[in-house]
Design a protein around this nucleic acid. Sequence first.
DNA 1: CGACCTCTTTACCCGCGGGTAGGATGACTA
DNA 2: TAGTCATCCTACCCGCGGGTAAAGAGGTCG
Lengths: 237, 237
Amino acid sequence: MNRRRVGPPGAGKQAAASSSPWRTSRERRHDRAVKREAVIRAAAQAFNEKGYHNTSLDDIAARLEVTKPTVYYYVSNKEQLLFQCFVAGVEQIRAAFRQVRELRAPGRARLNAVLRHYGEAVASEFGWCMVRAEDQDLSPAMSRHIKALKSEIDQGIRRLIREGIQDGSIAPCDPKMTAFALAGALNWIAHWYRGNQSMTGAAIAAAFVTIFESGLRPRGSALKVAAGVRTRRGMRA
Amino acid sequence: MNRRRVGPPGAGKQAAASSSPWRTSRERRHDRAVKREAVIRAAAQAFNEKGYHNTSLDDIAARLEVTKPTVYYYVSNKEQLLFQCFVAGVEQIRAAFRQVRELRAPGRARLNAVLRHYGEAVASEFGWCMVRAEDQDLSPAMSRHIKALKSEIDQGIRRLIREGIQDGSIAPCDPKMTAFALAGALNWIAHWYRGNQSMTGAAIAAAFVTIFESGLRPRGSALKVAAGVRTRRGMRA
DNA sequence: CGACCTCTTTACCCGCGGGTAGGATGACTA
DNA sequence: TAGTCATCCTACCCGCGGGTAAAGAGGTCG
């Protein structure tokens, strides 16, 4: 089970293996950085499909058509691998924040822009690692690091919400709870979205943003039907 | 590390161990069902704190101040344990649906009632197992079973949304995407909520429902500020 | 008392998988 | 041609943890 696949070239049953620098060309010189990145990507895909604990380093190696020690030649250990995937995902979102920062628009529009990028990132190949990576899987040091990055994003969203409330583009609300709700809905995409879906990540993110914006309660002056009913105490068990 | 703790009674450092039928009374006769349930609860708490894969059966046993084989006396294997926790959590939600079914109220109110119970369940001790249990951790048979239960809940939410749209209490929207967004936001509670928080699960659920209802965009006839701006194409990278 | 049953323990098995030692296999240099 | 370096492999270690065999430890009933 440790042996390298040597069957007829091009007969790889592994659906993924999109582009392994090893498979594609037999030349050895191929820049360390490129191969290292390929390892990260392969790990992300494997984690995404099977989960962190159900993915062995042999799996990742097989996906690249190499052996386990080769993987270890490019990355120090499994934890580091997960961490790198995480960072790759988070970096997309941080980029979105930077991009939005220099933007002349009301708070809600800026928030929506960030949320769309956020959703896209979660639906990307690194989405799983960014979202479902448990703190318990990492050493205390890395766990702290990740928590800090997550917190930074959370604070960024809250900030946009506050700014939106201030400039009147967002209805008054609790920024903390609202941020949790928005981020939660988007994060959850990583739990059900598989790449081979009909909708693209961007489309899903856009749909979600629309829902958040409008809310469930009908708008407009017309049909104020059933508006007085509201919650009606007594149905809460 | 397999030995049972025998220190001074009442000096348990384990914060949990809320009520172990073994710890509380030395009598042997204590009904099998009660102890079995205690095992399930202990497992749920352990999974909740450390994750499924980072929890060994020795951990669960230690939490109850017994040994591993005792746990196996009440449950067949670890997978079964996770499954039971999952079912316990889902059952709360199914109960909410049953309860709401026989209710004369517009769709949105019924949906909100379900969502509140849903949020409470996710914040409960079985929330983690219900929400974060990965399909890959279970045998194909159980995975199918769980998928079916989840799908049932999803369909129930979609149905309430459709009914709400029909009776005019919910604004027209895509039921599928909306259900994903709502359930996602609530599910995510299990990722950040720890019991010892200031807010109770019910309070969080209520806050979320309010956010979903109203949406971010300000309502009312007054201050239509910044309403014409909307999305503004060109900021989408 | 002795047979039997329920419950819990001690002591063990063993495979999976993270991680490593050290040896090929070239390519490039001198 | 010999030496050096980067790369990748074969072969192995070993601990953790799921799971089990079989032996107490009491309690109950005849």
